[in-house]
Computed example of a mutant assay.
Amino acid sequence: MGVKDINVAVIGAGRAGLIHAHNFRKSVPYARLAAVVDPNRAAAERAAKELGVETWYGDYREALRDDGIDAVVVVTPTIYHRDIVVDAARAGKHVLCEKPMAMNAEECEAMIEAAKDAKVNLQIAFMRRFDASFQEAKARLDAGEIGEPVLIRSLTRGPSTPQPWMYDLKKSNGPLAEVNSHDIDTLRWFSGAEFAEVYAIAGNYRCPEAAETYPDFYDNVLLTARFDDGRQGVIDGALSVQYGYDSRVEILGTEGVIFIGQLHEKTIVTARRNKEITRPFMNSWRHLYKDAYLAEDIDFVQSILEQRSPKVTGRDGMMAVKVVEAGNRSIRESAVIRLS
């Protein structure tokens, strides 16, 4: 008897949602894109047409009532994650939830419990763990090639102006959540330790249109951390930097250093008569992590078929959210925040 395909619905037809949808449409073994969902019904219909699928919904609850759907990918604004994931789990659907997992740790706990009670998988979409360079770096770390890691520094800077809803920290939790959740998970994964204390500073330098209505919004943040085993961490995050998409990691050990990340999108280099050399800068996370998104989606389906826990769990998502909460509190209070 052959393996039954996993029918997947993607909830959210924005940029990241369409990356997942295209993967499940044609590139993930033993998976079938069964439907797309978006509260903007025109966007849902447009995405379905682009993807060549017949079924689309304007309300995620309609998709959850579809007995032919086995799993969902949740790619909506963070404030909706808890309700969608809990409802999906109760409907017996496996869940791949984009980062950040939720608005606070209590919501994360509810999502984890719902998945546990329903005996479905809950995977959090920290796709950098599936990137080939990140995986090789982890293997070299575990093999002791640079001794004991002492300091892990991770930065993510994006070129785009934030979506208007991101200015409201009550809806987005700010760049620490929307941009730096990946960096937080990177530090946890590479260190093998938990954050013990954080201190963060932030400011709004490039988004003046947000300042009057959302005075607490920040587009630049620096977070320093101490882990529960004494190691150190640094996170650098920025929005609307204009120059390109910038994602890099440095791991300093007792006997060496590992660098991850590249600034260049293409290998072409141009030299001109003015004696200047130019090379295209990395333009988008969609290009840099294209293969990692696919590997993540493939592993999500494999974890369902193999009836095993996903490689990135709800707890991983919750621990990142706890650091976001602590970092935002540190910014507000200008204080070192200790995590329990």
Rank of each mutant, 00 (worst) to 15 (best):
P164E: 12
T213K: 13
C207N: 13
D168Q: 10
S303W: 04
A139K: 14
E197V: 11
A47D: 08
V221D: 00
T78Q: 01
E265G: 14
D299I: 05
R206V: 04
H81I: 03
Y243R: 10
F281V: 15
E98D: 10
A91T: 08
A110V: 06
M127W: 09
G233M: 01
P310L: 10
I235D: 00
K99W: 14
I84A: 02
D183L: 08
E113S: 13
V323P: 04
I298N: 05
P159K: 11
A210I: 05
F130I: 07
G314C: 04
Y243E: 15
S247E: 09
T313M: 07
V86N: 04
A34G: 06
C97V: 14
N104M: 13
E276C: 03
R153G: 01
L141N: 05
K275F: 10
S340V: 13
S191V: 12
E106I: 14
V28S: 06
F24K: 07
S247C: 14
G147F: 15
W165H: 01
A177R: 01
T186C: 13
D38P: 02
R248D: 10
L176Y: 07
G314Y: 09
W189P: 05
D87A: 10
T156P: 06
D117L: 09
A320L: 09
P39Q: 02
L141Y: 07
E255A: 12
M318Y: 08
V85M: 09
L151T: 13
L122T: 11
Y218L: 04
A143C: 12
K171N: 11
Q135F: 08
G314K: 03
D183F: 05
A200H: 00
R272Q: 15
A34Y: 07
K170W: 12
D297W: 04
V37C: 14
A9R: 02
E209W: 03
W165Y: 15
V336A: 01
E255S: 11
S154M: 08
W56K: 04
C97P: 00
M166K: 11
R338W: 03
R329L: 14
K49A: 15
Q242V: 11
G58I: 04
V95N: 02
A202K: 06
E107H: 12
K322P: 00
V8C: 07
A16L: 11
E265A: 10
D83P: 03
E136A: 04
A326N: 12
E109W: 12
A13M: 08
H22I: 13
G147Q: 08
R153S: 11
N23C: 02
R157W: 15
K93A: 04
V3N: 06
I152V: 15
